[in-house]
């Protein structure tokens, strides 16, 4: 079965018919293809977090429909029977360390799979496997999650979502508040899952470098609307537009833009440091950069 996620004219209003009514999404159309690495960017309050809660039916649209695999979620969809969707689409929320509650790390990671009917032994096996995947060794299994450092707690929480073995992994600013090394390591783990396990990844982030380095498709949101979408190459060409929207530009593109102002000529602005380095080498007549 193909696990595409498609939004058709999705509207969402918080607390309709109250004085606190707030519209968050306006007729959003969007497609997340199976096996893709999609990035959602936009300001705080642009509706990213609302949108991602639609990806596993935590929120139901107040208008339009969301197609998740073979399921269609409309405003009338019943709240029952959504578990299969939640198993397929795992969400790592912002600051996921706040969701830990069990006595031991192992039990906490096993909690998700057990909710979806995996036996206890199997779930504990998964816990061990996923803990290793996020870079913590077995000695952590029997420790209390509350005695760990912030970064370790984050890893445990992410392992807890990975243990559900979702087909689609949704990440809401997974590296916020981590140190540079931890940030890099986490992003590489997700990249490996995407490459090796063909996992579909949806990344919500403010870091344009992550988008440039990893994503193959970008949606730009503004005030609940999709204002631009396309491959990172396309979206990041328009540096002025991005700056005007205060969205930020990948460091390499920004540097290239400055070089352009000084007379350098690019066919296409480079997005990553490798691309930029290649270009510089080519210009200086050197050998093409090889890894």
């Amino acid at each position: 079965m193909v696990m595409d996620i498609r939004f058709e004219q999705v509207n969402f209003v918080y607390q309709p018919d109250t004085p606190f009514e707030q519209r968050a999404l306006y007729a959003v159309d969007l497609t997340i293809k199976e096996g893709s690495y999609t990035a959602l960017v936009g300001h705080t309050g642009s509706g990213k977090s609302t949108l991602l809660q639609h990806l596993n039916a935590l929120l139901k649209p107040t208008g339009g429909k969301v197609l998740i695999g073979d399921r269609t979620i409309t405003p009338e969809t019943d709240n029952k029977n959504l578990k299969p969707i939640r198993k397929k689409v795992g969400i790592v929320f912002q600051f996921p360390e706040a969701q830990l509650f069990e006595e031991t790390v192992a039990k906490d990671i096993a909690f998700g799979p057990q909710n979806f009917g995996v036996s206890q032994e199997e779930a504990l096996g998964l816990a061990k496997e996923k803990l290793e995947l996020v870079g913590l060794d077995d000695s952590f299994l029997e420790r209390s999650p509350f005695e760990l450092s912030g970064g370790q707690m984050r890893r445990v929480a992410i392992a807890g979502v990975l243990a559900m073995e979702p087909e689609v992994l949704v990440l809401d600013e997974p590296t916020a508040g981590l140190d540079p090394a931890g940030r890099k390591e986490m992003m590489e783990i997700f990249w490996r899952l995407h490459k090796e396990k063909k996992m579909t990844i949806v990344l919500v982030t403010h870091l344009m470098d992550d988008v440039a380095n990893f994503a193959d498709y970008v949606y730009v949101l503004e005030k609940g609307n999709v204002v631009r979408h396309g491959s990172p190459q396309d979206v990041f060409q328009d540096v002025d537009w991005l700056k005007e929207k205060q969205l930020g530009v990948p460091a390499a593109s920004e540097f290239a833009e400055k070089m352009q102002a000084k007379g350098a000529r690019f066919e296409q602005l480079p997005l990553t440091e490798e691309e930029l380095a290649d270009w510089i080498l080519q210009q200086s007549g050197g050998v093409a950069y090889d890894e």
Binding site: K83, R86, N115
Partner: peptide, 19 residues
């Protein structure tokens, strides 16, 4: 807000609240 967030996170991990 915090309650709502944690609730959502746990629902995403397969918890059914109020069922």
């Amino acid at each position: 807000d915090e309650t709502e967030k944690i609730m959502n996170a746990q629902r995403a991990r397969g918890v059914d609240f109020g069922e």
